[in-house]
Amino acid sequence: MSLSNQENEILGRVNDVLALLAKGQFIKAMTDYLADDVQLFEGNNPPKVGKDFCIAEEEKLLSTVVEFGGYNVISGPAVKDDTTFYEVVMEFKTNDGVSHRFEQAVRSQWKDGKIINERYYHA
């Protein structure tokens, strides 16, 4: 089954995002690819709404990170219509000495080249 032009374009964009995240460039990925009115969900928690708010929250988290262990895609990305999926392992250490390892499935909905809705499912 071949991808539509829209799906190919979205797949290119999600691969760009993943390349930035792999280098730890979270703020650049968010600045470049989040829609102004984005909604980001951590599991079943209420959404973080708005690009500026989401970036501010990410900056707070990143200010505690002392060691970045990687953002490694282990499955995907896959695209169907306006939605992408991938599975990733993210590792980092914070200034309180705690090492974090998040295994996530990430679902993103795209519109006009930007992420408008994203949910992180954690294991």
Rank of each mutant, 00 (worst) to 15 (best):
L61K: 14
C54R: 02
V88T: 14
L3H: 05
E59W: 07
M30R: 14
V89G: 02
E103P: 03
F85W: 11
E57M: 03
H122F: 15
S63A: 13
E42F: 07
F26N: 06
G76I: 11
P47W: 05
M1C: 04
L11C: 04
T83L: 05
D37Q: 12
G69Y: 05
N8L: 12
C54S: 08
Y71C: 09
F26D: 09
V73P: 01
C54E: 03
F85L: 15
D81G: 10
K28W: 07
N95D: 13
L11N: 00
N45T: 06
T84P: 05
A35E: 04
F102N: 13
I27F: 11
K114S: 03
H122M: 01
K28F: 07
Q109Y: 02
Y71T: 06
I55W: 08
F53C: 04
I27L: 06
K93V: 12
K80E: 08
F102V: 04
G69D: 04
V79C: 08
P77G: 10
L40Q: 00
R107Q: 11
E42G: 02
A105C: 14
Y86G: 01
P77W: 10
F26R: 02
V79K: 01
G76S: 12
L11Q: 07
R119S: 05
V106P: 00
D112I: 03
G76M: 09
Q39G: 00
E7V: 02
V89W: 00
L20N: 10
G24C: 10
S63D: 14
W110H: 01
K93P: 04
V65F: 07
A19C: 11
S75H: 08
L18T: 06
G70A: 09
L3A: 06
A78G: 12
K51H: 10
A19Y: 11
E58L: 09
A56S: 15
S108I: 00
F68T: 13
V79A: 02
L21A: 09
K114P: 01
A19Q: 15
E57D: 06
G113P: 10
H122K: 07
M1E: 08
Q104T: 02
G24D: 08
I115F: 01
L3Y: 07
A35S: 11
I27S: 08
I115V: 15
I116K: 05
P47I: 05
T84G: 09
D36E: 15
G12V: 01
H100N: 15
R119K: 05
K111N: 10
L21V: 12
E118K: 00
S108P: 00
F26I: 12
S2Q: 13
N117V: 01
F68W: 08
K51N: 13
W110G: 00
I10T: 05
Y71W: 15
Y120G: 01
T83M: 09
K51S: 04
S4W: 08
V79T: 06
E9V: 07
Q109M: 10
T64W: 14
G70S: 06
G50K: 05
G50F: 11
A78T: 13
Q109T: 12
E91F: 02
Y33G: 00
V17M: 13
Q109R: 12
D52M: 08
P77Y: 10
V73H: 12
A105N: 02
T94I: 15
